[in-house]
């Protein structure tokens, strides 16, 4: 593998490690399997001699997702487990952003729960769009969908989340 590609992969992993792990987690539903999937995907990527033609981020996310699907196929019996993609115990907001009221904490937990209840594809789109700031073109490349379809799925997911929050409040 070329040193340039190796460096880019390392930087990409450090930047998107949480999103990559979350995408894998949405597929496997199990954190240990998700970790295995991420590791397996990078192990495959390290064997590549040539960089991909398109976006490297899209390429890596697709590799992780495919590895997660493989892991899920191998261990179908663990499919019933569904872990949240969010860290427990609040958020990493800055002090100025942190709401100290119980009401706001409830809203945050409701939002987490609503995202966790989205379908698998929508969760992946939300993670890649909001947390990793991928373009719809890149997301479409990961999911092997038309970019318009990816954008539509994202908007529907956001609308669904808004409805859930309104209902819960």
């Amino acid at each position: 593998m070329e040193s340039v590609l190796r460096t880019e992969l390392e930087q990409l992993y450090r930047k998107h490690r949480q999103s990559l792990f979350s995408v894998a987690l949405t597929v496997t539903g199990c954190s240990s399997m998700a970790e295995d999937a991420v590791q397996e995907a990078f192990a495959r990527l390290f064997q590549k001699a040539e960089p991909p033609e398109g976006s490297l981020a899209s390429y890596v996310f697709a590799a992780v997702r495919n590895a997660a699907i493989d892991c899920r196929r191998r261990q179908q019996h663990q499919r019933s487990i569904t872990e949240s993609i969010f860290a427990s115990g609040g958020s990493d907001l800055h002090l100025s952003d942190i709401s100290t009221t119980a009401n706001q904490n409830d809203e945050t937990e409701s939002l987490k729960s609503a995202i966790d209840q989205l379908d698998e594809l929508s969760r992946q789109i939300v993670v890649m769009k909001i947390f990793s700031e991928l373009t719809f073109e890149e997301i479409a490349g990961v999911l092997e969908l038309p970019s318009a379809t990816a954008a539509t799925r994202y908007r529907r997911a956001i609308m669904k989340l808004e409805e859930e929050l309104r209902r819960s409040s």
Binding site: F21, E83, I115, I130
Partner: peptide, 30 residues
């Protein structure tokens, strides 16, 4: 606003052993 609120959430962090494994594999490929 909703997207900003979602972004303010914290995703789960993979275990540190995953970082070690991936970075070790990266060095090994080198």
């Amino acid at each position: 606003e909703l997207e900003l609120r979602i972004r303010a959430l914290s995703l789960r962090t993979p275990d540190h052993s995953l970082d070690d494994r991936i970075l070790a594999a990266l060095r090994q490929s080198d």
